[in-house]
């Protein structure tokens, strides 16, 4: 009885906190600013071909390393290409790589994690071993290996990052599933005659998805930065300029970086804000929904 009472006291506070305010106001201004920024960036990236901006491959749109001016908002790079246009087109590749990477990580890692946490036994041992192996493998080497062997297209670069996401995502999914699979509501569903599939989809998934969705946003930010790292090593997407490659080109020669730092700093600023928004939004989501979790 004492146990129950202590539990009740511990969970009472968040219960009161969330009856007072709506979910959207509890997420806070920062969350919504982040979301607005992400929508702007993603929207521009999606609409790039139809926007009235310069062709990113066209040289001599501006002068050599020309500073920002009206009509050429981010200035131009060493070959006179429009940095603003480059940044928008770069977003297409960077965000796509980040999205596919985290999608792969979630579909494969999430599925494996939930199944192994639910069924346990030998399957769990095998999957956990795979996760540990993936985690112990040097990440960069794996990415280099895949892109070198299979090609440097958007798909393979995204896939190599996605493979790296499998283990951390999968372990979270497994841990969450372990927590909930032991609860009586799962047993109750089983008593009601629910199949494994029904229990996993209807009872467990809604509980596992909340912490996972926060991780998805964080993970996408990490993938965008990781793609930049690969670009810096010269092993990212071959055709087209991702953000990473754009920054790499603008900053690779020291004289250019000194004469026209804007060519590197504008895309760096955009990457910074985008990753910050992804991380912040992910964190807020986790905090707000964790409180609800505690109430149980």
């Amino acid at each position: 009885m004492a146990e129950t009472t202590a539990h009740d006291i511990a969970v009472e506070a968040p219960a009161e906190a969330d009856t007072g305010q709506s979910v959207s106001s509890r997420l806070g201004l920062g969350f919504w600013l982040s979301v607005v920024w992400l929508i702007i960036v993603a929207g521009l990236a999606l609409l790039a071909p139809w926007l009235p901006i310069a062709d990113p491959n066209e040289t001599a749109v501006g002068g050599r390393l020309e500073g920002p001016r009206s009509g050429l908002w981010f200035g131009s790079d060493a070959t006179g290409r429009d940095v603003f246009s480059l940044t928008i087109w770069g977003a297409r590749i960077s965000l796509l790589v980040g999205f596919i990477a985290i999608l792969v990580g979630f579909l494969v890692g999430g599925t494996l994690g939930i199944l192994s946490g639910y069924f346990r036994g030998r399957f769990d041992s095998i999957v956990s071993f795979i996760f540990v192996t993936l985690l112990s493998f040097p990440a960069l080497i794996l990415a280099i290996l895949i892109t070198t062997l299979l090609g440097r297209t958007v798909f393979w670069v995204a896939l190599s990052l996605g493979i790296l996401a499998i283990a951390p995502v999968g372990r979270l999914a497994r841990a969450q599933t372990l927590v909930f699979a032991e609860r009586d509501f799962v047993t109750a569903a089983r008593v009601l005659g629910a199949s494994h599939r029904r229990i996993i989809v209807h009872e467990l998934l809604p509980n596992v998805v909340i912490p996972m969705s926060a991780l998805a946003l964080l993970g996408m930010g990490i993938a965008v930065v990781a793609e930049g790292t690969l670009a810096f090593l010269g092993i990212s997407v071959e055709d087209g300029l991702s953000w990473g490659k754009q920054i790499f080109l603008a900053a690779s020669r020291r004289s250019e970086l000194q004469d026209g730092p804007h060519a590197a700093f504008f895309p760096i600023g955009v990457v910074f804000l985008t990753v910050l928004s992804l991380n912040y939004a992910g964190d807020r989501l986790r905090e707000v929904f964790d409180a609800k979790e505690l109430v149980l």
């Binding site: 009586d184 047993t187 109750a188 008593v191 005659g193 509980n207 979790e293 109430v295």
Partner: peptide, 20 residues
Amino acid sequence: FYGVDVAMVFQNPMTSLNPV
């Protein structure tokens, strides 16, 4: 059969309802 002819009430109501 289970859930129709025979039903069960569990010990801990904190864990026998799905929180979400």
